[in-house]
Protein backbone atom coordinates (compact mmCIF):
# COMPACT_ATOMS: atom_id res chain seq x y z
CA UNK A 1 0.00 0.00 0.00
CA UNK A 2 1.48 3.41 -0.86
CA UNK A 3 1.84 6.39 1.45
CA UNK A 4 -1.34 8.16 0.28
CA UNK A 5 -3.34 4.99 0.90
CA UNK A 6 -1.82 4.72 4.42
CA UNK A 7 -2.78 8.28 5.26
CA UNK A 8 -6.45 7.62 4.60
CA UNK A 9 -6.41 4.26 6.42
CA UNK A 10 -6.11 6.14 9.67
CA UNK A 11 -8.98 8.56 8.98
CA UNK A 12 -12.27 7.64 10.64
CA UNK A 13 -15.12 6.42 8.43
CA UNK A 14 -18.67 7.64 8.91
CA UNK A 15 -19.97 4.25 7.78
CA UNK A 16 -17.90 1.15 7.33
CA UNK A 17 -20.42 -0.92 5.38
CA UNK A 18 -20.05 -3.73 7.93
CA UNK A 19 -23.73 -4.03 8.76
CA UNK A 20 -25.42 -7.31 7.81
CA UNK A 21 -27.90 -6.80 4.99
CA UNK A 22 -31.44 -7.99 4.58
CA UNK A 23 -31.85 -10.48 1.75
CA UNK A 24 -33.38 -8.15 -0.83
CA UNK A 25 -30.81 -5.46 -0.11
CA UNK A 26 -28.04 -8.05 -0.54
CA UNK A 27 -29.46 -9.07 -3.92
CA UNK A 28 -29.58 -5.41 -5.01
CA UNK A 29 -25.98 -4.88 -3.86
CA UNK A 30 -24.84 -7.94 -5.86
CA UNK A 31 -26.67 -6.81 -9.01
CA UNK A 32 -25.43 -3.22 -8.79
CA UNK A 33 -21.82 -4.21 -8.01
CA UNK A 34 -21.62 -6.72 -10.87
CA UNK A 35 -23.19 -4.25 -13.30
CA UNK A 36 -20.80 -1.47 -12.32
CA UNK A 37 -17.78 -3.81 -12.47
CA UNK A 38 -18.69 -5.04 -15.96
CA UNK A 39 -19.11 -1.46 -17.16
CA UNK A 40 -15.75 -0.44 -15.75
CA UNK A 41 -13.78 -3.55 -16.71
CA UNK A 42 -15.09 -4.40 -20.18
CA UNK A 43 -15.03 -2.11 -23.19
CA UNK A 44 -18.46 -1.40 -24.64
CA UNK A 45 -18.28 -3.18 -27.99
CA UNK A 46 -21.51 -1.51 -29.13
CA UNK A 47 -19.94 1.94 -29.51
CA UNK A 48 -16.75 0.57 -31.05
CA UNK A 49 -18.68 -1.45 -33.64
CA UNK A 50 -20.85 1.59 -34.40
CA UNK A 51 -17.75 3.72 -34.82
CA UNK A 52 -16.25 1.20 -37.26
CA UNK A 53 -19.58 0.83 -39.07
CA UNK A 54 -19.62 4.59 -39.70
CA UNK A 55 -15.92 4.64 -40.67
CA UNK A 56 -16.49 1.87 -43.25
CA UNK A 57 -19.77 3.35 -44.46
CA UNK A 58 -18.20 6.76 -45.03
CA UNK A 59 -14.80 5.50 -46.20
CA UNK A 60 -16.03 2.85 -48.65
CA UNK A 61 -18.91 5.17 -49.58
CA UNK A 62 -16.52 7.94 -50.63
CA UNK A 63 -14.40 5.49 -52.64
CA UNK A 64 -17.56 4.03 -54.20
CA UNK A 65 -18.82 7.52 -55.06
CA UNK A 66 -15.52 8.49 -56.67
CA UNK A 67 -15.39 5.22 -58.67
CA UNK A 68 -18.99 5.34 -59.87
CA UNK A 69 -19.07 9.12 -60.31
CA UNK A 70 -21.88 9.99 -57.90
CA UNK A 71 -19.41 12.09 -55.89
CA UNK A 72 -17.23 14.84 -57.40
CA UNK A 73 -14.13 13.35 -55.80
CA UNK A 74 -10.80 12.12 -57.17
CA UNK A 75 -10.08 8.46 -56.21
CA UNK A 76 -6.80 9.54 -54.56
CA UNK A 77 -8.64 12.07 -52.38
CA UNK A 78 -11.28 9.49 -51.43
CA UNK A 79 -8.48 7.04 -50.55
CA UNK A 80 -6.80 9.66 -48.37
CA UNK A 81 -10.04 10.35 -46.47
CA UNK A 82 -10.60 6.58 -46.15
CA UNK A 83 -7.11 6.28 -44.61
CA UNK A 84 -7.83 9.11 -42.15
CA UNK A 85 -11.14 7.47 -41.12
CA UNK A 86 -9.43 4.10 -40.56
CA UNK A 87 -6.65 5.80 -38.57
CA UNK A 88 -9.28 7.52 -36.37
CA UNK A 89 -10.96 4.15 -35.82
CA UNK A 90 -7.66 2.54 -34.82
CA UNK A 91 -6.76 5.38 -32.42
CA UNK A 92 -10.21 5.28 -30.78
CA UNK A 93 -10.03 1.49 -30.39
CA UNK A 94 -6.54 1.62 -28.87
CA UNK A 95 -7.61 4.38 -26.42
CA UNK A 96 -10.72 2.41 -25.33
CA UNK A 97 -8.78 -0.83 -24.72
CA UNK A 98 -5.86 0.97 -23.04
CA UNK A 99 -8.28 2.63 -20.60
CA UNK A 100 -10.02 -0.68 -19.96
CA UNK A 101 -6.80 -2.58 -19.23
CA UNK A 102 -5.21 0.15 -17.09
CA UNK A 103 -4.82 -1.09 -13.51
CA UNK A 104 -5.31 -4.75 -14.43
CA UNK A 105 -2.45 -7.26 -14.38
CA UNK A 106 -2.25 -10.97 -15.05
CA UNK A 107 -3.57 -13.33 -17.68
CA UNK A 108 -5.59 -10.69 -19.58
CA UNK A 109 -2.48 -8.50 -19.89
CA UNK A 110 -0.76 -11.39 -21.68
CA UNK A 111 -3.67 -12.32 -23.97
CA UNK A 112 -4.78 -8.74 -24.68
CA UNK A 113 -1.21 -7.54 -25.20
CA UNK A 114 -0.28 -10.22 -27.70
CA UNK A 115 -3.65 -9.90 -29.44
CA UNK A 116 -2.90 -6.20 -29.98
CA UNK A 117 0.62 -7.08 -31.19
CA UNK A 118 -0.93 -9.52 -33.72
CA UNK A 119 -2.96 -6.66 -35.23
CA UNK A 120 0.08 -4.41 -35.40
CA UNK A 121 2.25 -7.14 -36.98
CA UNK A 122 -0.46 -8.15 -39.45
CA UNK A 123 -0.88 -4.62 -40.73
CA UNK A 124 2.88 -3.99 -40.79
CA UNK A 125 3.27 -6.96 -43.13
CA UNK A 126 0.28 -5.68 -45.13
CA UNK A 127 1.87 -2.25 -45.61
CA UNK A 128 5.02 -3.89 -47.03
CA UNK A 129 2.95 -6.20 -49.22
CA UNK A 130 0.76 -3.24 -50.27
CA UNK A 131 3.87 -1.41 -51.47
CA UNK A 132 4.91 -4.41 -53.57
CA UNK A 133 1.39 -4.75 -55.02
CA UNK A 134 1.28 -1.01 -55.81
CA UNK A 135 4.57 -1.32 -57.69
CA UNK A 136 3.40 -4.35 -59.66
CA UNK A 137 -0.21 -3.41 -60.48
CA UNK A 138 -1.00 -0.26 -62.47
CA UNK A 139 -4.79 -0.26 -62.30
CA UNK A 140 -5.93 1.82 -59.29
CA UNK A 141 -9.07 -0.21 -58.54
CA UNK A 142 -7.51 -3.67 -59.06
CA UNK A 143 -4.66 -2.60 -56.77
CA UNK A 144 -7.21 -1.40 -54.21
CA UNK A 145 -9.16 -4.63 -54.41
CA UNK A 146 -6.05 -6.76 -53.83
CA UNK A 147 -4.72 -4.72 -50.89
CA UNK A 148 -8.19 -4.39 -49.36
CA UNK A 149 -8.76 -8.14 -49.84
CA UNK A 150 -5.63 -8.97 -47.83
CA UNK A 151 -6.51 -6.37 -45.15
CA UNK A 152 -9.96 -7.88 -44.65
CA UNK A 153 -8.46 -11.37 -44.56
CA UNK A 154 -6.36 -10.21 -41.59
CA UNK A 155 -9.39 -8.49 -39.99
CA UNK A 156 -11.60 -11.58 -40.38
CA UNK A 157 -9.02 -14.01 -39.03
CA UNK A 158 -8.15 -11.76 -36.07
CA UNK A 159 -11.83 -11.26 -35.22
CA UNK A 160 -12.24 -15.05 -35.10
CA UNK A 161 -9.05 -15.35 -33.02
CA UNK A 162 -10.24 -12.59 -30.68
CA UNK A 163 -13.64 -14.20 -30.33
CA UNK A 164 -12.17 -17.59 -29.44
CA UNK A 165 -9.56 -16.07 -27.10
CA UNK A 166 -12.02 -13.87 -25.20
CA UNK A 167 -14.97 -16.25 -25.47
CA UNK A 168 -17.01 -13.79 -27.55
CA UNK A 169 -19.34 -15.41 -30.06
CA UNK A 170 -20.36 -12.06 -31.64
CA UNK A 171 -16.73 -11.44 -32.61
CA UNK A 172 -16.40 -14.95 -34.08
CA UNK A 173 -19.54 -14.50 -36.20
CA UNK A 174 -18.37 -11.06 -37.35
CA UNK A 175 -14.99 -12.52 -38.33
CA UNK A 176 -16.67 -15.21 -40.41
CA UNK A 177 -18.94 -12.56 -41.94
CA UNK A 178 -15.97 -10.38 -42.95
CA UNK A 179 -14.29 -13.36 -44.63
CA UNK A 180 -17.52 -14.19 -46.52
CA UNK A 181 -17.85 -10.53 -47.58
CA UNK A 182 -14.19 -10.52 -48.63
CA UNK A 183 -14.77 -13.60 -50.77
CA UNK A 184 -17.87 -12.02 -52.32
CA UNK A 185 -15.94 -8.81 -53.04
CA UNK A 186 -13.12 -10.73 -54.76
CA UNK A 187 -15.67 -12.57 -56.92
CA UNK A 188 -17.37 -9.23 -57.68
CA UNK A 189 -14.07 -7.94 -59.09
CA UNK A 190 -12.41 -4.51 -59.16
CA UNK A 191 -15.49 -2.76 -60.62
CA UNK A 192 -17.87 -3.86 -57.86
CA UNK A 193 -15.85 -4.82 -54.75
CA UNK A 194 -16.51 -1.41 -53.18
CA UNK A 195 -20.29 -1.90 -53.52
CA UNK A 196 -19.95 -5.15 -51.55
CA UNK A 197 -17.91 -3.53 -48.75
CA UNK A 198 -19.93 -0.32 -48.71
CA UNK A 199 -23.14 -2.26 -48.00
CA UNK A 200 -22.24 -5.65 -46.50
CA UNK A 201 -19.02 -4.67 -44.75
CA UNK A 202 -20.39 -1.71 -42.82
CA UNK A 203 -23.67 -3.64 -42.46
CA UNK A 204 -21.77 -6.37 -40.58
CA UNK A 205 -20.56 -3.81 -38.06
CA UNK A 206 -24.07 -2.31 -37.66
CA UNK A 207 -25.56 -5.78 -37.02
CA UNK A 208 -22.65 -6.60 -34.66
CA UNK A 209 -23.35 -3.38 -32.72
CA UNK A 210 -27.05 -4.29 -32.45
CA UNK A 211 -26.23 -7.80 -31.14
CA UNK A 212 -23.69 -6.40 -28.70
CA UNK A 213 -26.23 -3.85 -27.39
CA UNK A 214 -28.82 -6.61 -26.93
CA UNK A 215 -26.31 -8.83 -25.17
CA UNK A 216 -25.24 -6.04 -22.80
CA UNK A 217 -28.85 -5.27 -21.95
CA UNK A 218 -29.59 -8.96 -21.28
CA UNK A 219 -26.41 -9.34 -19.21
CA UNK A 220 -27.27 -6.35 -17.03
CA UNK A 221 -30.91 -7.33 -16.59
CA UNK A 222 -29.81 -10.82 -15.39
CA UNK A 223 -27.12 -9.51 -13.07
Amino acid sequence: MNSSEKETVESPEPFDGDRPLDLNAALSVVAAAEKRARRELRADGTWLYLLWALAWLLGYGLLHGSQKGWLPLQPETALLVFGVLIALGVISTVVVFARQSRGIRGHSTFTGGFYAVSWALGFTVLSALGGAIAAAVDDFWLRGMLINGIAILIVGLLYITGGTTFNDVVQVVMGIWFLVVDLAAIFAGPDHFLTVFFILGSGGFFVGAAFEALRQRRRFSHA
Binding site: E5, G17, L21, V30, A32, G103, R105, H107, T109
Partner: peptide, 26 residues
Protein backbone atom coordinates in the same frame (compact mmCIF):
# COMPACT_ATOMS: atom_id res chain seq x y z
CA UNK B 1 -19.28 -11.70 2.66
CA UNK B 2 -22.68 -10.69 4.03
CA UNK B 3 -21.83 -7.03 4.66
CA UNK B 4 -22.41 -4.33 2.09
CA UNK B 5 -18.83 -3.16 1.51
CA UNK B 6 -17.28 -6.62 1.44
CA UNK B 7 -20.10 -7.92 -0.76
CA UNK B 8 -19.49 -5.11 -3.26
CA UNK B 9 -15.74 -5.71 -3.12
CA UNK B 10 -15.92 -9.47 -3.67
CA UNK B 11 -18.57 -9.11 -6.41
CA UNK B 12 -16.23 -6.72 -8.24
CA UNK B 13 -13.17 -8.93 -7.72
CA UNK B 14 -15.18 -11.89 -8.97
CA UNK B 15 -15.76 -9.96 -12.23
CA UNK B 16 -12.01 -9.26 -12.49
CA UNK B 17 -11.47 -13.03 -12.30
CA UNK B 18 -8.98 -15.20 -10.45
CA UNK B 19 -6.40 -15.06 -13.29
CA UNK B 20 -6.11 -11.26 -13.03
CA UNK B 21 -5.40 -8.76 -10.28
CA UNK B 22 -6.66 -5.20 -10.03
CA UNK B 23 -4.86 -2.09 -8.78
CA UNK B 24 -6.11 -0.97 -5.37
CA UNK B 25 -6.71 2.53 -6.73
CA UNK B 26 -8.81 1.24 -9.63
Amino acid sequence: IHAESRLRAIATLNEVGERDRIAFTK
